[in-house]
């Protein structure tokens, strides 16, 4: 390990180059035309509708992931079944697949000519579907190691004292997993808010109805309204920051209880 001050210096430099300077540039550009222009850009009806749709869809996806991701992690850790290692390896694949490919696959599978009889594309449900696809690994991968490390003796003690499996899960397992679930859900949320490649293909992109913020911003950039695009992106960043802080706060309060 490098010495403390050196490690701090290197990580600060790295964070600055990779995150802080680019994000500051976005915010700087957003206010390039002054406060009034910023306000007009983010209060345009289509901008507000897109932000609301994006945030609600991202929250729904985070909630779905919290439940389904924990379930998948549970099955992968506690159950044994043939092909388990293959399934375990497959979990990360949505990260590796270019999201535009994910969009085309979802379009052909769940579009008008769906071979499986499910047609949800060009609706708000399709947005949730695309977000769920690209954020699948987050909760699974954050819960899995905690579950592996979890002391089985606590559960056995609870069972021997007469607790039902449901009570054991709720009172013993869930509180231990909660921080991991929340941090996975927070990552899902952040990733879902910014998702573009798969959504642009299957959401329909009708303003005020099925257009998410990333696609709206894309339209602004294509119309050479870069300042407006940066303004909407800044609001996306700010709201995401507040929600991410909120999720961490809930985790800390639960932990300290």
């Amino acid at each position: 390990m490098p010495e403390g001050s050196l490690a701090l210096g290197v990580s600060t430099l790295w964070l600055s180059v990779i995150v802080l300077i680019p994000l500051s540039a976005v915010v700087a550009q957003a206010f390039g035309g002054g406060w009034a222009e910023f306000w007009d850009a983010v209060t345009a009806p289509a901008a507000i509708a897109a932000l609301v749709l994006t945030l609600i869809a991202a929250l729904v996806v985070s909630a779905i992931n919290a439940v389904m991701g924990t379930l998948v992690a549970w099955v992968l850790v506690r159950d044994d079944f043939p092909g388990k290692r293959v399934v375990n390896a497959m979990i990360d694949l949505p990260f590796a697949l270019p999201t535009i490919v994910a969009g085309i696959v979802l379009l052909s599978l769940y579009g008008p000519n769906s071979p499986v009889g499910i047609s949800v594309t060009f609706t708000r449900a399709a947005i949730v579907l695309a977000m769920a696809f690209v954020t699948l690994p987050f909760v699974v991968r954050s819960v899995q190691p905690v579950l592996i490390e979890l002391d089985r003796e606590m559960e056995e003690a609870a069972a021997s004292l007469g607790a039902s499996p449901g009570v054991t899960f709720r009172r013993i397992v869930a509180p231990n997993l909660l921080p991991a679930i929340l941090s996975g859900a927070a990552l899902s949320f952040a990733r879902a808010v910014g998702e573009f490649g798969s959504i642009v293909l299957i959401s329909g992109n009708i303003p005020l109805k099925t257009q998410v913020s990333s696609v709206y911003v894309f339209g602004l950039i294509q119309s050479d309204a870069n300042t407006n695009a940066a303004a909407v992106a800044t609001v996306m960043l700010a709201i995401s920051l507040v929600i991410l802080f909120g999720i961490r706060l809930v985790g800390r309060l639960q932990h300290g209880r």
């Binding site: 680019p22 550009q29 573009f196 642009v200």
Partner: peptide, 17 residues
């Protein structure tokens, strides 16, 4: 530099492949 970075991120962010 900030403007350049902004332009680059704007281009990268819009998914222009």
């Amino acid at each position: 530099a900030l403007v350049a970075v902004a332009a680059a991120t704007a281009i990268a962010a819009c998914g222009g492949s």
